[in-house]
């Protein structure tokens, strides 16, 4: 239950943090909320010699929104702030929903949104809605900044596109389009504090008629090594007016695309079924919300 011995740094600026990261290389670990990192260290799966705490870097924290431009969320922003933020709730409800479901209030108070994606657990809560929203990530290193879609940042179970010496600085969420809506749901073993057996986010944009689907993204979590975008559901529903029969077909298609494993949280067969249940429910709910938007 003890952590290994390490040297601790709490840099105040991104430059200081990047310099430390550059100097210590893979002997250092970035500390955000510690809710994933310390569990791995307690199990002796990681034993960093240097700890770089990024919680004092104000530039990596907070949520800002510019009408017409979208929102920026600092990587070190706590999940509880995302959950409570009025703009996120109003404009990016799907992310608000997922943030509210992560762990307990204690975990949400400690955990950061950046840590959730950098940890890259297939069962993670927030990458699913963030990918559905088309979020981008901004990565900083001493040699500069680069940007990429979050969908390309998460490479697989515990694997990200972060290069040595790089930090995740923030997420950029595009301005939500008119007549659009997003919804999130998950299935776990109990009502709180569980690891999701399946989670899902749907984002729908409608045409001017407020009936026909212009664009649709259904993203599944926990059923593949990384957030899975269902191409078939988009193909089936784009240009159409979803009705129960079409939605049923789409739910079947999503289930067919999922490639879950069996573990203590559910068999692969159960997860395929749950994908269907969630897809049916979320497609209907999101479509209704988009019509009313």
């Amino acid at each position: 239950m003890f952590l290994n011995n390490f040297e601790y740094f709490a840099p105040q600026t991104p430059e200081e943090a990047l310099t430390l990261l550059d100097r210590f290389g893979d002997k250092a670990k970035v500390l955000a909320g510690g809710t994933d990192l310390f569990l791995l260290m307690k199990d002796k799966l990681l034993q960093p010699e240097y700890m770089i705490d990024i919680n004092q870097i104000t530039g990596f924290k907070g949520i800002s929104y510019e009408p017409g431009q979208g929102a920026t969320i600092g990587a070190a922003t706590k999940i509880v702030e995302v959950e409570r933020d009025a703009i996120i709730r109003e404009k990016y409800y799907v992310l608000h929903q997922a943030a509210s479901e992560l762990g307990s209030v204690q975990v949400r108070t400690m955990a950061t949104i950046g840590g959730n994606s950098c940890n890259a657990s297939p069962a993670a809560e927030t990458p699913t809605p963030l990918v559905a929203l088309g979020a981008k990530v901004v990565l900083h290193s001493l040699s500069g900044k680069r940007e990429m879609p979050l969908a390309e940042f998460i490479l697989g179970n515990r694997k990200t596109a972060l290069k040595p010496g790089e930090l995740l600085a923030c997420f950029i969420l595009p301005e939500p389009l008119p007549r659009s809506a997003g919804r999130y749901a998950y299935i776990g073993l109990r009502e709180a504090m569980e690891i999701d057996a399946v989670n899902m986010a749907v984002y729908i944009v409608l045409e001017d008629d407020s009936r026909t689907v212009k664009d649709l993204r259904l993203i599944m979590g926990s059923v593949a090594p990384r957030p899975l975008f269902s191409r078939e559901v988009s193909a089936l529903l784009t240009g159409k007016e979803p009705n129960p029969a079409l939605i049923e077909k789409a739910a079947e298609a999503a289930s067919g695309e999922a490639s879950p494993i069996s573990d203590i949280r559910g068999s692969a067969e159960y997860r395929h079924e749950m994908v269907k249940v969630l897809a049916r429910r979320l497609l209907q709910e999101t479509y209704t919300a988009a019509k009313e938007a």
Binding site: Y8, A10, L31, G34, T35, F38, L39, M51, D53, N55, V80, G103, S104, V105, Q106, V107, T109, M110, M193
Partner: peptide, 24 residues
Amino acid sequence: GDCGACTVLIDGEPVLSCLTLAIA
């Protein structure tokens, strides 16, 4: 992080002291 027995308040917010560095 699972049981909450170690909960303390930091600046009024509930955190798990078993996953918090004292130095921080």
